Simulated scan of single mutants.
Amino acid sequence: MGGAVIPLSCHTIGPFFPHPFVQEGDNDLTRIAPDAPPSRRGSRIRLQGRVLREGGLPCVNAVVEAWQADAAGRFRHPADPGWQEADPEFLGWGRAVTDAEGRYEFHTLLPGGFLDRAPHVNLLVMASGLMRPVSTTLFFPGFSEANAADPVLGLLPAARRPLLVATEDGSGGFRFDILLRGPASEETPFFED
């Protein structure tokens, strides 16, 4: 039997995630535990947006994971040469689930840049209909020089780079919508591991 293999629904992630997969407070990267005080370093921000399917339809019950450096550009991980100086009150990792409109939200700190990287947040999306999780990176407005020099952002054609830059939401936070599939001029660029 030749030809292309057509994926079946059983080959995709989902169709849903059990409710305990995302706990209350998992979307707060500023705390090392739900009952811990938030980090006192850096600028607190809210990062919110929508996960959308082709045609702008909301992606309901998708899981979005975020991980990032602290406000000084450090990770609390032994792979970071300066990990011992990382903010001990900042977890730097979180998980959110989308609602009926495809909305997600994280509470975090504006990350610092590190090495040759501009301030950014890494995102992983798992959703029904995807064959595997997809990952992307969001960058922040106001860091035009650092963004222009970032090697990851530089992998994209210049016309697609703005798709990875969040927008200010008018309340001290940032908005970053993720379009899983659509025209190249609108679809969020994803990176392979």
Rank of each mutant, 00 (worst) to 15 (best):
G49Q: 07
F140V: 04
F90K: 03
P18F: 05
T98A: 05
F21K: 05
A72E: 13
R132C: 13
G112S: 12
R117E: 00
P189E: 10
T167L: 10
G82R: 03
G92R: 15
F114M: 04
Q84A: 04
P38T: 09
S128M: 07
G55Y: 10
G2P: 08
T12R: 00
H107V: 10
S43Y: 02
H11N: 14
L164Y: 01
F190L: 03
L115E: 14
T167W: 10
P20T: 08
P111L: 09
F143Q: 05
L180C: 10
L164A: 01
G112C: 10
D70K: 01
E89R: 03
D150R: 00
G14M: 04
D26Q: 14
W67M: 11
G172D: 10
L130E: 05
G102I: 06
D87F: 13
R175W: 03
D99F: 09
A166R: 14
V22L: 13
P20D: 09
L179W: 01
G25P: 06
A66F: 14
N61H: 14
A146T: 02
S9L: 12
I45C: 15
S9G: 10
L57C: 06
A146V: 05
D116W: 00
E85A: 08
G142M: 09
I13T: 06
V97H: 02
D35S: 13
L155M: 11
P78R: 08
E186F: 01
N147G: 00
A36K: 14
G3K: 15
E101F: 06
D70N: 04
F139E: 06
N147W: 00
F190H: 12
F90M: 02
L52A: 07
M126P: 11
L138A: 01
G92I: 14
A62D: 06
L29W: 09
L8P: 01
F176L: 11
D116T: 00
P15W: 02
G3R: 15
P88D: 15
I178G: 07
V125A: 04
R40W: 03
R31T: 13
R175H: 06
C59R: 08
F143D: 01
